[in-house]
Write a protein that binds this DNA or RNA. Structure first.
Length: 805
RNA sequence: GCGAGGGUGGCGGAAUGGCAGACGCGUUGGACUUAGGAUCCAAUGAAGCGAUUCGUAGGGGUUCAACUCCCCUCCCUCGCACCA
């Protein structure tokens, strides 16, 4: 049939051309077939694929091919997360244009994908920097702006002085910029925000429906949303008409609130201190507090301190005066930036009270009744010393006290979320322009939808200095107000690239659609994504924004494919590819270049190894020795397929074949690709041991089983076996359960739970007979002799355990 | 501190209450060979000549039977981290 020696280089390029020519991986909607939408996370066109990509796409391609052979109409598209700072930084460095850098990277990486033989429908390729793409997110921006879901406001934001832009919290983890690794500062800035918290409750509730997601990711999203139920309470400031509002989850401890702590940036701090003689101290304290770096704050590397503002407020429950402090551990951006301090029942307040000699009043008693006064008692319990609420359980007391406060008009039940507004504006060039015009007369005006897209001007000089590059492009900035026709200027900020990646998977459903972001009918057919594959690093950012975006599109009447519009049904978070136990990175110098591996062994070997070495969720340590093993195995497959000359079907071979189909199928179904491969390896080992009896049928099945892992080789072998159609168009082999049954049963004989012997018996042997045989078994008998048999356990078709005493 | 996931040969890893270590790497021996870093065959958890004994981080428990279920302790990884 085919060549004697396996030559991946010629085979792989031959079939890649063939696939491209026939367009075999292009799909369209087909209501007669079940659909399956498989997606790997959108790559950033950084220049070259790395091993992490190879893993991500090898997993996806394997599942794609498997599902397709099982009769599914599989959508498997790819595109590019093409906006972003690296392109801009490269352009500054090379005095070139970000588009040039981006598109040449895309060209190279597209080639790499093709060399890997991934089964993409390239006719659906999308680059997010294409105006035909970002036009639609500008439209959605405008609709959200009209509905008040997008607003412009001032807030304390992470600012990277190197990139000259604001950063979202998850882009500034550990206080460092995710792109350039520089220290990030907090600055008050006016920016564009998406009001995510409006959807906090729905986003939280629907996490429960995401049964195909790893629990870890679901918990991360729950924590990120950070719902807490409690009360907001207003405290009157003594001798003043001012009020301080707090949020608390423990209104049951209100009678124990003995002082008040405000964040240093709280707007009332200075006003309260005015005229009390504390002004100077407060000013110094605010300055000192503002110098605590983000890193130190996260690590808790600062002393907990506070200063009295000079003012008091009144506890609405006790009527007692509470000194108002400002404290450096109170956060301005959570709750109201003010905390009612209950030192007896909160350890931070306890430490603070000890330090500044403030009263500590016990109001909750543990159910056991013992009170340890050396520390705060933070659990629920029975209320004591709490007026008419004394004796109530904490939970009940919370409701009663909230009710009481609301009758007085000074409090109400409140739900608070950690989830914050999403800042989406960036002071960079290489992003989707925000479609807003500022008019001297009309104010902030949206660009009319007929004028979309607001295209990025092409002729810009990027220097990396002095803020937003677009602000310097006169032709872009100066415009007419769409309302009054008067002089106006354009918004010069661009959108966070997470906006593009929040909906790109919709665009794949109808990439050329020109009446909206997506053809609702196409989305109805393809969505949701049946299997999404990507790194854990996107557990909260991208995956939360995408969920949000689908809900927004639903509420804007642009798209509805289900009640919840949840975009991802099943999520697989694959582990990293490491070398020397660490993630591969240029700075560490531990890169394995996919091109070199493909050059040496071919794509099939690279893919097989990466799938075989570790289960997909686990990190994978790269090993050159390991890849040799995969290479050897594929060569063995190649050679054994030259056999297959036997006419007679031996019962052993038939049984092995059906057992292997069964194992490989169920292992792929549960995403244990490494054990699926071992099952094929065992089959191949069997074929080698029985080379003379290998039939053409067995070889056919072997080729089909290996085709999702090593598609090029499989295609070549399949053709050599005389098939005209591509192997991916063949049906995944079925096994016959009757043919997986062994001729003889192997029964393990245990005495007192210890393995003593094994029996080969006919499958029709009865239980009593087997028990008898077990007791008589040569190696078991000595352990039974002279002892009393108390019990015999029989596990059908598996084992006999003889309990003796 | 809180939450989640882990800890199995020299290594990557199998085994979801029933033969611990499948499969692969490595190692050793053999075959074929002018040669082989190709290929094929075999052995390979530890101790012991052996029959056997011990062995899944450590300790306890449930069970005829535990890597697997329960309790305690230790260690590792990840996420959150003054969230009031």
């Amino acid at each position: 049939m085919t060549n004697e020696t396996y030559d991946p280089k010629s085979i792989e390029s031959k079939w890649q051309k063939e696939w491209e020519k026939s367009g075999i991986y292009q799909v369209k909607e087909d209501p007669k077939r079940p659909k399956y939408y498989l997606l790997e996370m959108l790559p950033y066109p950084s220049g070259r694929l790395h091993m992490g990509h190879v893993r991500n796409y090898s997993i996806g391609d394997l599942v794609t091919r498997y599902k397709r052979m099982n009769g599914f109409n599989v959508l498997h598209p790819i595109g590019w997360d093409a906006f972003g700072m690296p392109a801009e930084n490269a352009a500054i460095k090379n005095k070139s244009h970000p588009a040039k850098w981006t598109y040449s990277n895309i060209d190279y990486m597209r080639l790499q994908f093709k060399k890997l033989g991934i089964s993409y429908d390239w006719s659906r390729e999308v680059a997010t920097c294409d105006p035909e793409y970002y036009k639609w997110e500008q439209l959605v921006f405008l609709r959200m702006f009209e509905k008040g879901i997008i607003i412009r406001k001032e807030a304390m934001l992470n600012w990277c002085d190197t990139c000259k832009t604001v950063l979202a919290n998850e882009q500034a983890e550990g206080g460092k910029c995710w792109r350039c690794d520089n220290e990030v500062a907090l600055k008050p800035l006016t920016q564009w925000f998406v009001r995510l918290p409006l959807y906090a409750e729905e986003l939280l509730k629907d996490i429960d429906t995401l049964e195909g997601w790893p629990e870890r990711v679901r918990n991360m999203q729950r924590a990120w949303i950070g719902k807490s139920v409690g009360a907001s309470i207003k405290f009157n400031v003594k001798d003043s008409d001012k009020q301080v509002e707090v949020f608390t989850t423990r209104p049951d401890t209100l009678f124990g609130a003995t002082f008040m702590s405000l964040a240093a940036e709280h707007p009332l701090v200075e006003a309260l201190a005015k005229g009390t003689g504390q002004e100077k101290k407060i000013k110094e304290f605010k300055e000192k507090t503002s110098k605590i770096g983000r890193l130190d704050r996260i690590a808790g590397n600062f002393e907990k301190e506070g200063v009295w503002t000079g003012a008091y407020c009144i506890n609405p429950a006790t009527g007692l005066d509470m000194p108002i402090y400002t404290a450096n551990f109170v956060l301005m951006d959570y709750g109201t930036g003010a905390v009612m301090a209950v030192p007896a029942h909160d350890s931070r307040d306890f430490d603070f009270a000890k330090k500044y000699n403030l009263p500590i009043k016990q109001v909750i008693s543990p159910r056991s009744g013992d009170i340890d006064k050396s520390k705060a008692y933070e659990d629920d319990g029975i209320l004591i010393d709490s007026g008419k609420f004394t004796g109530l359980e904490s939970e009940n007391a919370r409701n009663q006290i909230i009710l009481d406060l609301s009758l007085q008009g000074v409090g109400k039940a409140t739900v608070n979320y950690k989830l914050k507004d999403w800042c989406i504006s960036r002071q960079r060039y290489w992003g989707a322009p925000i479609p807003i015009i500022y008019c001297e007369k009309c104010g902030t005006v949206g660009v009319p939808e007929k004028d979309l897209p607001v295209e990025l001007p092409k002729d810009v000089q990027l220097t990396g200095e002095g803020g937003s590059p677009l602000a310097k492009v006169e032709k872009f900035v100066n415009c007419k107000c769409p309302k009054c026709g008067g002089k106006a200027r354009r918004e010069t900020d661009t959108m966070d690239t997470f906006v593009e990646s929040s909906w790109y998977f919709l665009r794949y459903c109808s990439p050329k659609y020109d009446k909206g972001p997506v053809d609702p009918a196409a989305a109805k057919y393809w969505m949701p994504i049946d299997q999404y594959i990507g790194g854990i690093e996107h557990a909260v950012g991208h995956l939360l924004y995408s969920r949000f975006y689908m809900k927004i599109l639903r509420d804007l009447n642009l798209l509805k494919f289900s009640e919840t519009n949840e975009p991802v049904k099943n999520l697989l978070t694959q582990g990293m590819v490491t070398l020397g136990g660490a993630a591969m990175s240029k700075s560490r110098g531990n890169i394995v270049d996919p091109d070199k591996i493909i050059e040496k062994y071919g794509a099939d070997t690279a893919r097989l190894f990466i799938l075989f070495a570790s289960p997909p969720e686990k990190d994978l340590e790269w090993s050159d020795a390991g890849i040799e093993g995969s290479w050897r195995f594929l060569n063995r497959v190649w050679r054994i397929c030259q056999a297959g000359k036997s006419i007679e079907q031996s019962p052993d071979l038939e049984r092995w074949t059906h057992k292997t189909i069964k194992r490989v199928t169920s292992e792929i179904e549960r995403f244990h690709f490494n054990t699926a491969i071992s099952a094929i390896m065992e089959f191949v080992n069997f074929l080698y041991a029985n080379e003379a009896s290998v039939t053409k049928d067995a070889v056919n099945i072997l080729v089909q089983l290996i085709s999702p892992f090593a598609p090029h080789m499989a295609e070549e072998l399949w053709k050599g076996l005389g098939h005209k159609e591509s192997v991916i168009n063949s049906s995944w082999p079925k096994f016959d359960p009757a043919k997986t049954a062994d001729e003889m049963m192997m029964i393990v004989v245990q005495v007192n739970g210890k393995l003593r012997d094994k029996l080969e018996v006919d499958p029709n042997t009865g239980e009593e007979e087997i028990k008898k045989l077990a007791q008589a078994a040569e190696k078991a008998a000595p352990f039974i002799e002279g002892k009393q048999v108390k019990k015999i356990i029989y596990v059908p078709k598996k084992l006999v355990n003889i309990v003796v005493g």
